[in-house]
């Protein structure tokens, strides 16, 4: 992987991370029409296309801002594959019948598929982690939010009115609880196959 050359389209990824409105607009102007057409040809409408594109860009943003995301293929191919995957998942969720897909755009190249797969996996995990975090008790949620926002455990302890040792232990137990919730969910095993 590290041997591969970064594609010029990395500018779109960087632009998203920097919340650059020009770049976001350019992505919509250049790459959205193809996705919209695809979704419309496959049982969807313009509103659904809008949601799929927006969700996909948020997933890319999250991945690129948390981890490094290095584009080694054209953005076009990567983005289209991601939107397509998301749309197929959406179709599967809403209809039980077999979906027929008009396949007229195919991308060659392992890179795009591999990168899209990784981003997709990241997005699924992110959603699972968020879902499980929300299942934690209020005390844990508050403590974890404080811990990661304030940074200094001493200050966290002070703001919550507990001792430093207690706050630190509690933090590990809360992440421990979250670890269990995540590992027990059926979805986690699917993602870690």
């Amino acid at each position: 992987m590290s041997e591969k050359k970064l594609h010029d389209d990395q500018k779109y990824i960087d632009g998203l991370v920097q919340n650059n409105a020009f770049i976001i607009e350019a992505i919509y102007d250049k790459f959205a029409p193809k996705v919209i057409n695809y979704i419309k040809q496959n049982s969807g409408d313009s509103d659904q296309a809008q949601d799929i594109i927006q969700d996909t860009l948020i997933t890319i943003y999250n991945q690129a801002s948390e981890k490094k995301l290095e584009l080694t293929c054209p953005f076009d191919a990567y983005f289209f594959l991601l939107c397509k995957r998301k749309w197929l998942n959406e179709l599967k969720k809403t209809s039980n019948k077999e979906v027929t897909i008009k396949e007229d755009i195919l991308y060659k190249g392992e890179d795009a598929h591999e990168l899209a797969f990784e981003t997709d996996l990241y997005g699924e995990k992110h959603a699972l982690f968020t879902e499980m975090f929300n299942k934690l008790g209020t005390a844990c949620k508050e403590l974890l939010a404080a811990t990661f926002k304030i940074k200094s455990m001493e200050e966290v302890a002070e703001s919550l009115g507990v001792t430093y040792a207690y706050a630190r232990k509690k933090k590990s137990l809360c992440i421990g609880k979250l670890t269990e919730l995540v590992r027990e969910s059926p979805k986690f095993n699917l993602l870690n196959k």
Binding site: E66, K125, F133, F148, I175, T179
Partner: peptide, 10 residues
């Protein structure tokens, strides 16, 4: 999870 929480809140 620890990395996820750190990034999310920061």
């Amino acid at each position: 999870l620890s990395a996820f929480l750190e990034h999310t809140f920061e």
